[in-house]
C-alpha cells in the first residue's frame, strides 16, 4: 500500500493540459488508478468525455499508450491488444510484463458497451475494466443511462408536471459483472483514495479479468459547485448510496462501513438534479429512495456477512 507521497513520486501517466471540465471526477479516478500501475500500462477508452477531452489532436494527455476505437467496444478493443501481447510474448517477440486497462463511462459500460464487456470478462482476458460512473451521458449533454439514479433530472428524463425525473433504479452492474465469476470486482470512490487505490492494485494483480466501478461526479450533470466533487463522493459513501465493496473470487466484502450512516437527503440535496424531489408533492419519493438505499445495504450485508 503506497502512501500519497510515494504515489506522487511515481511517474504520472495522466498529464495536465487535458480539457475535462473544471472539477470533473473522471480525471481524479484515472490519476488515482494509474498512480498504482507498477508496470507499463496500455489504456483503451470508450468514446465519451474522458476520451475526447484527453486526446484532442494533436495533443494527448496520455503518457502511456492509449487507444480509442469506438463507443461500445473499449473491452473488445483491449481484448485484441491483450491477445496481441500474449501472442507476441509467446513467440518471444516481446519482453517485460504489461498491464491493460480498458475504460468507459457508464453509458459506454452499462449500456452500449455491456456486450463487449461481458465478452471480455467471459473470455478471461487479463484486463482491468474501469467504469467511471457519472450516472448519465454527460458528453452528449446529460441524457439518462441505465446508471442514472432514480429520481434524477436529466435532459431525457426531465422533471415536469407528470414526471419526477428518472423512474427506474440504477442497473446493478457490479452484480452482472460478478456473475461472470471473474477473480476481482470492486466499487470505489475517489474520496476514499486509500480504499480505491488498494482495489486498483488488487485489480492489476488479479491475474484475470477485473472490474472497477468508480464514482466520478459531473459538476454540470449533477449541478453542484465544482469544489464539492470529492465531498459529494464522500457523501455518496457515507449515506450508503455508493457502498464500497469488493468481490474477490466470489467472496463479497464491504470494505468501508460508515460509522454513522447519513440520511440520503444529505447526498441528494447537494445536487441540482434532485432539487425537484424536495418539493412537497415529491416527498414520498425521498422516502422511497431512502428505503431503496436501506434495502440495498441490508441485502449487501446479508451477502457479505457481518463485519469481521
Amino acid at each position: 500500500m503506497a502512501s500519497l507521497r510515494e504515489m506522487a513520486a511515481a511517474p504520472q501517466l495522466f498529464a495536465p493540459g487535458h480539457r475535462m471540465c473544471a472539477g470533473c471526477g473522471a480525471p481524479v479516478v484515472m490519476r488515482q488508478v494509474l498512480s498504482v500501475a507498477k508496470k507499463p500500462v496500455v489504456v483503451s477508452c470508450a468514446t465519451g468525455c474522458l476520451e475526447v477531452a484527453t486526446t484532442i489532436y494533436p495533443y494527448t494527455a496520455w503518457r502511456c499508450s492509449f487507444i480509442h476505437n469506438a463507443f461500445e467496444n473499449s473491452a473488445a478493443t483491449m481484448s485484441g491488444v491483450e491477445a496481441a501481447y500474449r501472442s507476441l510474448k509467446r513467440q518471444g517477440k516481446l519482453k517485460g510484463e504489461m498491464l491493460f486497462l480498458a475504460v468507459g463511462g457508464d453509458g459506454g459500460t452499462y449500456d452500449i458497451g455491456l456486450q463487449s464487456l461481458s465478452g471480455m470478462l467471459e473470455r478471461g482476458h487479463r484486463v482491468v475494466y474501469l467504469c467511471y460512473d457519472n450516472g448519465a451521458y454527460m458528453n452528449t449533454g446529460i441524457q439518462r443511462s441505465s446508471a442514472t439514479p432514480r429520481g434524477a433530472d436529466t435532459t431525457t428524463t426531465p422533471a415536469g408536471t407528470e414526471s419526477a425525473g428518472k423512474r427506474q433504479p440504477r442497473k446493478d452492474l457490479l452484480a452482472i459483472v460478478a456473475a461472470h465469476h471473474i477473480p476481482y470486482a470492486a466499487q470505489g470512490s475517489p474520496s476514499h483514495w486509500r480504499d480505491l487505490t488498494r482495489k486498483a492494485e488488487k485489480a492489476f494483480e488479479a491475474g484475470g479479468p477485473a472490474f472497477l466501478n468508480l464514482l466520478a461526479p459531473c459538476p454540470r450533470g449533477w449541478r453542484y459547485d465544482t469544489a464539492q466533487t470529492i465531498e459529494l463522493t464522500r457523501l455518496a459513501v457515507e449515506t450508503c448510496f455508493w457502498p464500497l465493496l469488493e468481490i474477490e473470487h466470489g467472496r463479497c466484502k464491504i470494505t468501508y462501513r460508515p460509522k454513522q450512516k447519513k440520511p440520503l437527503t444529505d447526498f441528494l440535496k447537494a445536487q441540482g438534479r434532485f432539487k425537484h424531489l424536495f418539493k412537497d408533492e415529491n416527498k414520498h419519493l425521498l422516502e422511497e429512495l431512502q428505503n431503496e438505499v436501506d434495502d440495498n445495504w441490508k441485502d449487501l450485508e446479508s451477502r457479505c456477512g457481518e463485519p469481521g
Binding site: 478493443t77 481484448s79 485484441g80 491488444v81 496481441a84 463487449s116
Partner: peptide, 28 residues
C-alpha cells in the same frame, strides 16, 4: 499456429479486437 485466437461474442467485437491487436503491432 502460434496465433492467439479470440473467440469474440459478435462481429462488432471481432473487428474491434482485430483493430486493438493491429494497433498493438500484431499481424491480425
Amino acid at each position: 499456429v502460434a496465433t492467439e485466437f479470440v473467440t469474440v461474442e459478435s462481429e462488432h467485437s471481432a473487428m474491434s479486437a482485430t483493430v486493438g491487436a493491429a494497433a498493438a503491432g500484431a499481424r491480425a
